[in-house]
Amino acid sequence: MPKRPDTLETTLLAVELLRRIPRHRKISAVELHEQLKHAGIERELRTIQRQLEKLSEQFDIERDDRSKPFGYRWKERASGLSLPVLSEQESLMLMLAEQHLRHLLPSSLMQSMDGFFQQARANLSPHGGNATGNVTGRGNRREREWLNKVRVVSTTQPLLPPKIRPGVFETVSNALYANRWLALDYKNAAGKRKTASVMPLGLAQQGVRLYLVCRYEGYDNERILALHRILSAEASVHTFERPRDFDLQRYDADGHFGFGDGKRIRLMFRIAKEAGLHLLESPLSSDQQVREVGDGFEISATVVETAQLEWWLRGFGEAVGEVRREALSM
């Protein structure tokens, strides 16, 4: 009879493997071995292979053994690793998150969350419930009603997310997590195609698009690549030391995602009252100053100079005028 600690360790390993098996691509034992290693879970490759064989027999996991290394993924309509202890409030938050993300993320990314969303929907259905009894049909009525009382609305013209090629997001995000070099085949907005080895430093979502911040091999400046323009991505076995001088939050604050270079200016302009009223409620900056002038406002604020700022100002048309910019010392 196996010892209890060994049984517990085997169970925990099975759970970790089930969590990491994807739905929309196949993953090998070697890849899972690497993921577990980076998560601080040291196991022999052969142990993982044996565990995967057992799991594919006991769960709805597809095992592709036509060639080595074998590939594993959840079957199309498999429930996956369910969350039986979701409370009504947790289920509600997941459903609201799904509504918010549906038009913000590519469908392939939303599909990877299907197991969680399905469990939340089941919990909030009229006949919802689970083995622990945390959710019942009577107890979740208010939560179900709440879904029809709130909605996330877009502040701009809604757009559908661009399509990201299969496997690209998974490869990029895994390489980013593990600090591994990436070999990319990329086509820019002008249609020019290029292959490059890059150091992935961060992922950012801007509207419905996802962007990779990276450094090209041999360079020390950052580039921004749209994930939907990556034709293929392959993670290297070689790792890199993450640059100490890079901070994604500071990179964003410097306006790089708005096509700026961190240059701060004192922006001054006049705006019609009807068009500028919202700036009294949602200021441009913490040091914004407003002066009422006739039928308009005179606004002054410290901002980062970006192309996005220019587009924003032009969007007001004739409602904005007398625009001035003063450079600030760094």
Rank of each mutant, 00 (worst) to 15 (best):
V15G: 09
L17G: 02
P22M: 12
K26H: 09
L36E: 02
Q49N: 12
Q51C: 09
L52H: 01
K54Q: 15
K54T: 14
Q58G: 07
I61S: 02
S67Q: 15
F70M: 03
G71M: 00
R73H: 13
G80T: 10
L81V: 06
S87A: 09
L92K: 13
Q99T: 12
P106R: 03
P106I: 02
S108I: 14
F116G: 05
F117H: 06
R121I: 10
G128E: 09
G137A: 15
R141W: 11
L147Q: 10
Q157L: 13
P158M: 09
L160W: 07
R165N: 10
V168W: 08
L176G: 00
N179I: 01
N179S: 14
R180L: 05
W181S: 01
A183N: 04
A183L: 03
K187T: 15
G202S: 03
G202I: 00
L203V: 01
Y211S: 10
A226F: 06
R229F: 03
H238Y: 02
Y251A: 05
D252H: 08
G258S: 15
R266Y: 04
L267Q: 12
M268K: 15
R270W: 10
A275W: 08
L279A: 04
S282G: 02
S282Q: 12
S282T: 11
Q288R: 06
Q289K: 12
V304R: 05
V304W: 04
E305Q: 15
Q308R: 01
E310T: 09
R324F: 08
